[in-house]
């Protein structure tokens, strides 16, 4: 997966009426920040290696969770993770994230679908879990 090609393609395409704003994140790793129209507040980060394309969006940090509500929140997150389309809930260091992985053979269309779904899911999740946050 060539992220430059992907950048050009995504910038130039719409998927189900949504368009994408792609910004490479400077550094050693190939990382793209993708903002999906209609869900601009929840940028999706995309990184690829020889085995898979990994996409994720930050939801909230552990410090933002009301401590006594954490067990219920985690239980809810696990339960939602299974039926949620094309994404799963997870944690990277102190960040809770919603993420999805694609095979490197994924088509541009599939990637666009994944990005859109992730961004939309992220907004819904944030709204659902608002009560658990400080």
């Amino acid at each position: 997966m060539d992220t430059q090609d992907l950048t050009l393609h995504l910038s130039d395409t719409t998927h189900e009426g949504r368009h994408f704003h792609v910004m490479p994140i400077e550094g050693k790793e190939d990382v793209l920040q993708v903002t999906v129209s209609g869900a601009e507040e929840m940028p999706v980060y995309l990184t690829a290696d020889e085995a898979q394309i990994l996409c994720f969006t930050y939801l909230f940090d552990e410090g933002e969770v009301i401590p006594e509500r954490l067990p219920t929140l985690l239980d809810n997150m696990l339960r939602l993770s299974v039926p949620m389309p094309l994404s799963a809930l997870g944690k990277i260091e102190q960040h809770y994230v919603v993420h999805g992985a694609l095979a490197t053979s994924a088509t541009y269309r599939e990637i666009a679908q994944e990005l859109t779904t992730l961004a939309d899911n992220a907004i819904d999740l944030l709204e659902i879990f608002e009560d658990f946050l400080k």
Binding site: G27, E29, P43, Y45, T47, F56, Y58, E93
Partner: peptide, 19 residues
């Protein structure tokens, strides 16, 4: 990769963006 990626995002995006 995930750790390196998040570190890179944190460094680049800074505190003025949604992440």
């Amino acid at each position: 990769r995930v750790l390196r990626t998040t570190a890179q995002i944190d460094t680049n995006i800074g505190s003025n963006q949604s992440s």
